[in-house]
Structure formats: C-alpha cells, structure tokens
C-alpha cells in the first residue's frame, strides 16, 4: 500500500539546531544578526513550502553480503551497507521532497546574488528533505510492531547512484513530483530517496559516519 503525506512546515517539529548544524556551526550558535536572517528566511520558506513524502512496505530477501531482493528487483548495496541489514524482513522504500516551490525560491535567491540567504535557504532545504526519514521511521515504529534500521540511500555509503533508476521504477511515475536527471539526480534538488529496514530484532547501526567517505560533511564535523 502506497502512503503519501503532504505537510506544511508549521506542522513539522523543525529543529533550529539542525539548521545551525547544516550551516556548519557544529555545536555553536550563530550570532544575533545571522539568527535574525535565518528566522526571516525560514518564515519565507514556510509560506511557500510543503514537504511531501511517499512510501510503501515490501518483502525483502537477503541474497548475499552485498545484494538484497526487494519485490522482484535485486539491489546491489555494496559491502558497507550489507553488514547492517542482518535480520531485515521488510523494507520501507520512500521518496521525499521539499518541492518545486522551494526550488523556485532558491533559484530566485541565486539570481539575486544574495549568497548568504542562498546558503541559509539551501541549509534549511537539506534539513527539510532529510526530516522525512525520521518522520517515516516514527510512523513505522507506531504502525508496525517491528524495529527499524538506519535509512540508506542510492548514491551514498557505496550504494551506486545508478540504482536510482531501478529504485524509482518501484514507484508511480514522478512520485511527489520528483524526476531523475540523466545522471540520476533528483529534481526538485532538495529530495531524498532511500529505504528503512524492518525486522523483529534491533538492527546493528553504523556509528556516526563510519559508512561514508565524505570527510568534509557537516554531519561528520558536527559529531566529531
């Protein structure tokens, strides 16, 4: 069963701290002037943006250390993700987006040349797009009496981004309005795709950023 939600930002429990971390502040707080600019940008974004996400649950079969079968499709997740999927029985496949309205807003900021506001808006967009995986994980934990894994996405942690095409083939055309470019990137730009594993026992979870090679990522810097 395909589940779809549209949520206004005001209804989301958006953490300011997450925005600050996304902007590179680690555990520090921005100065007053920057906070004022973040607040006004967030207000503008809140007026136009609706976060959309869609997901469904599918049976999963582990084929090898690297490969799993979801429905009729075999996905090669790579050697990094595989070890964390022991005990997986089902998978929740999802897509989420901050939407085309947000993309247009960001595009206008780029044209205006206001790099500071563009950076703030981009950081907020990242938080919005990624928030969906925690929303979905919460919904899964409430609806199913099962444990959830960390989320995993094509293009990250050794999972080839080319598998996006196969991944999207499992959804209706343009899910939540998201399309793929020739290089398998999503439009609107602030979109995420991935899956969360479901099982009876707790999943082994990667410690912080152990799976990812991106040494410069804001999340890694925030946790180190």
């Amino acid at each position: 069963m395909l589940i779809e939600h549209s949520i206004k930002i005001k209804e989301l429990n958006l953490s300011k701290k997450d925005i600050y971390i996304s902007m590179g502040y680690r555990n520090d707080t921005p100065d007053k002037e920057t906070i004022k600019l973040i607040d006004s940008t967030l207000k503008e974004i809140s007026e136009i943006t609706i976060v959309r996400y869609m997901y469904f649950i599918s049976e999963v079969q582990i084929l090898s250390e690297t490969d799993i079968k979801i429905g009729e499709n075999i996905f090669s997740l790579g050697r990094k993700i595989g070890p964390y999927l022991g005990g997986i029985q089902k998978a929740c496949l999802y897509v989420s987006t901050a939407g085309k309205e947000f993309d247009e807003y960001l595009g206008n900021l780029k044209k205006s040349g206001d790099i500071m506001k563009e950076f703030i808006a981009d950081s907020i967009g990242t938080v919005l797009a990624e928030l969906s995986s925690s929303l979905i994980a919460n919904e899964l934990e409430k609806s199913y009496n099962m444990k959830v894994s960390s989320p995993y996405s094509p293009g990250y942690c050794g999972w080839d981004i080319k598998e996006q095409k196969k991944f999207f083939s499992l959804f209706p055309d343009k899910p939540c309005g998201i399309t793929l470019s020739d290089s398998f990137l999503m439009f609107p730009i602030k979109s995420v795709s991935g899956f969360i594993g479901l099982g009876n026992d707790s999943f082994k979870r990667p410690k912080h950023c152990d799976l990812c090679n991106n040494l410069l990522c804001f999340k890694r810097r925030a946790t180190n």
Binding site: M23, Y25, P30, E33, D114, I115, M116, F119
Partner: peptide
C-alpha cells in the same frame, strides 16, 4: 569563524 561568517563578509 564559520562558513556563514565568510559569506557575511563576502556580502
């Protein structure tokens, strides 16, 4: 200083 400080200065 952080990235936003660089940007504020550039602005």
């Amino acid at each position: 200083a952080f990235v936003p400080n660089l940007l504020m200065a550039a602005r």
